[in-house]
């Protein structure tokens, strides 16, 4: 077999290999892309009359999931500037997707009346650049 023919075969094999690697790499890359897009999950627990943690920091433009639970009764979770308003029932998790578009400090309040200390039930979300 001529060297050139061998080179062609090798090149073909290499090309096929590269293609195969390339094809195989596509789903990996998609997975990697999805992994980087997967929003960070932050767990927040509600009970009369506070949220834990009482303060979190988010990055402007970065999507996050706030995973909310309540251990005693239904509470509310509301911030007008961050554009969410939901109830947190007992016995299930409630996810809120947030992508802050403005930096600053934002109060989040319980807006579902929960008793005599309801008026002070709030937390802070700090959004940084």
């Amino acid at each position: 077999m001529k060297t050139s023919t061998i080179n062609k075969i090798v090149n073909t094999i290499l090309l096929a290999g590269v293609c195969e690697i390339g094809l195989a790499a596509v789903p990996v890359m998609i997975n990697l892309t999805r992994a980087s897009d997967n929003p960070k999950v932050i767990e927040i627990a509600a009970k009369k009359f506070d949220f834990t943690p009482s303060e979190i920091t988010l990055k402007k433009g970065e999507p996050v999931i706030l995973r909310l639970t309540s251990s005693d009764r239904v509470h509310g979770f509301m911030s007008k500037p961050l554009k969410f308003d939901t109830d947190i029932p007992v016995g299930k998790t409630t996810d809120v997707a947030v992508t802050p578009d403005t930096a600053g400090d934002f109060a989040v309040i319980c807006d579902h009346y929960c008793g005599t200390g309801h008026g002070g039930m709030q937390m802070k979300i700090k959004v940084v650049e």
Partner: peptide, 11 residues
């Protein structure tokens, strides 16, 4: 919305 973060509003 007088002051929603003070619970001074109606949704």
């Amino acid at each position: 919305d007088l002051k929603p973060e003070w619970d001074w509003s109606t949704s």
